[in-house]
């Protein structure tokens, strides 16, 4: 606790960096994965292939990807962009599946009703299917958000500092307290971010929290 208070400003700086390194990939991942997931859902044959490709991408170990990326992107080795790109790739990989599941969870009868009321294909996707897939999409975002915050801790291994720096630093100095505080900070950050998504979900999907719903 003492150490935590002594180093509060440093930790706050690291946490702030960590937050940005996590939020950007989650948001980018969502924006990219939703259209891919929609295509995967609508396009029966290619759809399962898209989802399989996504889950294969997820199995690429992160560390080498981080190391190789600069030579592919033309970025410098210490550029935080590398971390953001890698985390975005994983976020997309996970979220494509939950987006496809989400669109799959929308009742065919409701889609049919929307079609019969004269929604065009585009209006139907945006105004009916997207909001109704919302709960599953939100669940996907929450899983991705938590694991992104946790995964981002490897970035100090390639020289981009964030809360993970507390692990590498603590490891080198054999100082357990620093690592424990790092873990606690990461978990708290992940939970706070999770709370943010839940609240955003409440605001965006008021029909889910009505009283007396049967």
């Amino acid at each position: 606790m003492r150490w935590f208070l002594d180093n509060w400003t440093d930790i706050r700086g690291l946490a702030w960096r960590h937050l940005w390194l996590s939020i950007v990939p989650v948001v980018l991942g969502f924006v990219l994965a939703v259209p891919i997931g929609y295509v995967a859902h609508r396009w029966r044959l290619g759809g399962s292939a898209l989802v399989s490709i996504a889950s294969v991408v997820y199995t690429i170990p992160s560390l080498p990807l981080l190391v190789i990326l600069p030579s592919l992107l033309g970025t410098t080795f210490l550029d935080p962009t590398n971390v953001i790109v890698v985390l975005t790739i994983y976020a997309v990989a996970v979220m494509v599946r939950s987006a496809a599941d989400g669109f799959g969870s929308v009742s065919e009868a409701v889609v049919d009703a929307a079609r019969a009321s004269g929604y065009s294909a585009w209006q139907r996707a945006v105004q009916v299917e997207l909001p109704l897939a919302g709960p599953v999409l939100l669940a996907g975002v929450r899983v991705v958000s938590v694991s992104t915050v946790s995964l981002a801790t490897i970035s100090p291994l390639i020289g981009v500092s964030n809360l993970g720096s507390l692990f590498t630093d603590g490891f080198q100095r054999s100082f357990a307290t620093e690592i424990v505080i790092g873990i606690v900070c990461v978990v708290v950050l992940a939970l706070l971010l999770d709370l943010l998504w839940v609240l955003l979900g409440r605001v965006a999907m008021p029909w889910l929290s009505v009283r007396g719903a049967r």
Binding site: V110, D112, S117, G118, L132, W207
Partner: peptide, 30 residues
């Protein structure tokens, strides 16, 4: 087809209402 459907009323079994819209917004949809 889209224009045609907008010009014709349609009532289906289980009402086919949009669960994420209030009653008045459902009715206002067409």
């Amino acid at each position: 087809p889209v224009e045609l459907r907008r010009s014709i009323g349609y009532v289906m079994q289980h009402a086919g209402l949009l669960p994420h819209r209030t009653v008045v917004d459902n009715v206002a949809t067409p």
